[in-house]
Design a protein around this nucleic acid. Structure first.
Lengths: 363, 363
DNA sequence: TAATCAGAATATAACGATATACGTTGACCG
DNA sequence: CGGTCAACGTATATCGTTATATTCTGATTA
């Protein structure tokens, strides 16, 4: 532990032969001072190798220039890309990012919320669990700056950044239906989480629009876990009438499903077509490349951070509750084809669909 | 910006009818106080909804309970897993993690180093670029707690956590050689970075041990970039005598190489065998599953954090410079086979090799 | 009863930077 | 030459905690 006496403004002022106030002004670049004192302060600071103490400054200014990010798993493509966006934006504005991952544990989430507040972060970006909504809402209402991601906590003080997943699954179903699929399986996520529910709902919406009746047997619940997704996929392919296409509700479950299909010799897209949520790097170079529903996570991170910071810089709370919604895009690659036994219908692809290969082939 | 007057210890003390000092002692659980005042302070704190001000505490204690992590790309499996390990360990000890990614930009790296110090983090975990070694060394020598990852800065005050990459590539070459490969290509990383050089050297070491003469034509320089790796792989497979196996020096380049092979109809392991560095999730479910050199990144993160914290908690610097070395393990999957044209030799696999499939099939 | 002593409570000095209120100084003008 | 005003400096309160030095209890003992 460093017990070494640190170099303070007082030292600089002494060295420069001016008062501490002047030194502060010069180094902080505010107020008025003569060229003479500017020069001597700068020289003195250089000479004694002065380094400002951010903690003292933070105490005085009641502002730490730090934002907290509470996410569930830093170790998922989904979130790392998001954090990268946040970090980029924060750094540009002179803010630092404190990271916490909760692992979807409500207790830890609450601990971290408290910890962040005690540490005096200027605001947080979070995606709170259902059971903690009230606490987050209270915090936001009590003036703690907050931006939520894919969750609405019902506070008019917190901005919200969302991917519009009301249509995401529907887009996928629409596409698969256009290819001729009428039996479309779903590997659902965790219904305890907002995103899990939305993705399921958007799948049902797509079925409705396509005039396909919902079949409970075609839905398995992977809970965003690889092991359960693997089992679920196995159940689907062992049905007497297996679906001709599958929709998988997140990236890591998609991995598990691919493993399952490979292990059981099920060809893609020959035997079954597959669409995954999220769009990790590997989706593009998998053989065959996987068609996915891409969320602009990096961009979401930037937006979330910008929303938070704009709220901080303004002296008044933002005029009205900000709500940014980003659409999910279907990125068409090679993992879908018309079902084996049926004749392919005339293709009528949805307008929002991205047809070209979005992955540069580096040539 | 919150201008609201915050609730301080003074308020608690007033409410409890005791002095501020007693309130501090009770809440901090140190010193001596009567049961009576304990009760009233606790009640008062509850009543006024007191929340300690971490900034003020940090100023007083000269300790922020925060560590900084400087990495190059948060958006890579490699590092996210590492950070997760750090975060887990830090949180357990009551520390927070401030994250910065430098994108391998020397200027940003220096800025972040300065910023971290000003913010008063108790220590940092970093993997500095060559050109900034001196600055980091100075910082460490001047008493700024530091743990470096895969880089030795030559300061006796900084602990070091390294993966032993002196043998990593050699293990892969040994394995491929045992399968009968004598022409092994390398997609090298960025030689400006320590890891890039080490990985190249370990490849050469492997060749030496196997009695294979180094052939410059079989080495392409991907610089850890996907586009260059793609081009490099294409160059390798267009050689008049293409290598029968390839070693790729990191995860993201492996993705690019796979894409290249797929685009050009080169089969794995039929046409070419492939070993990748790093062991991302998708390596396990790719078809075929990819044989990789796995580094225990999560564990490294934990170790780095523990080393840092142990240095902080002790009042004296650690007795001797800590150096933790972790071996890389070859995880054998399905991406390698004997070369097409030659007879397979009797297999003599290296001892350190992991033979069983380490990826649970979830069944 | 005065002296002693421990335990409990208080008052206050840090920690280091910022900003406000107040003095100086000197230039300029009537 | 006295007065005004701007430009510049200084001294100091403040942010909220912790820790030290000090005072104040009351109870026990010589």
């Amino acid at each position: 532990m460093t017990k070494r006496k640190s170099i303070t403004l007082t030292d600089v002022a002494k060295e420069a032969g001016v008062s501490i106030g002047i030194a502060s002004r010069v180094l902080g670049g505010y107020g008025s001072f003569s060229e003479k004192s500017r020069a001597s302060v700068v020289a003195a600071a250089e000479k004694v190798n002065y380094r400002a103490n951010g903690v003292a400054r933070a105490l005085r200014l009641r502002r730490t220039n730090t934002i907290g990010v509470l996410i569930s798993q830093i170790n998922s493509y989904h979130w790392t890309t998001f954090v990268q966006g946040v970090e980029e934006s924060a750094k540009r504005a002179g803010y630092c990012v404190i990271l916490s991952n909760t692992g979807d544990d409500p207790t830890r989430e609450m601990e971290y919320l408290r910890d962040m507040r005690e540490r005096g972060v200027d605001g947080i970006i979070a995606s709170p669990l259902d059971c903690n909504l009230r606490a987050f809402r209270q915090a936001a209402d009590s003036g703690f700056a907050m931006v939520t991601v894919n969750v609405q906590i019902g506070s008019e003080h917190a901005a919200v950044v969302m991917t519009d997943e009301k249509r995401a699954g529907a887009d996928a179903v629409e596409y698969l239906n256009a290819l001729g699929h009428r039996s479309i399986g779903l590997v659902a996520g965790d219904l305890e989480l907002e995103s899990g529910r939305q993705r399921l709902n958007s799948y049902r919406l797509g079925l409705d629009e396509a005039g396909i009746t919902f079949d409970d047997d075609l839905v398995v619940y992977g809970n965003y876990r690889q092991d359960e997704a693997y089992q679920g996929a196995r159940r689907l392919i062992s049905l007497r009438q297996p679906p001709t296409a599958m929709l998988v509700c997140n990236e890591s479950m998609t991995g598990a499903v691919l493993r399952c299909l490979r292990d059981h010799g099920v060809g893609i897209p020959g035997d079954i077509s597959l669409v995954g949520f999220d769009d990790p790097d590997w989706a593009g170079f998998y053989a065959p490349a996987i068609t996915t529903l891409r969320e602009e996570r990096y961009y979401m991170g930037k937006l979330a951070c910008d929303a938070l910071l704009s709220g901080l810089e303004l002296s008044d709370p933002p005029p009205d509750p900000t709500l940014v919604t980003l659409r999910t895009r279907l990125v068409v690659r090679q993992s879908c084809a018309p079902p084996r036994t049926k004749q392919s219908l005339t293709l009528q692809l949805p307008a929002s669909t991205l047809q070209e290969n979005p992955d540069s082939a580096f040539e």
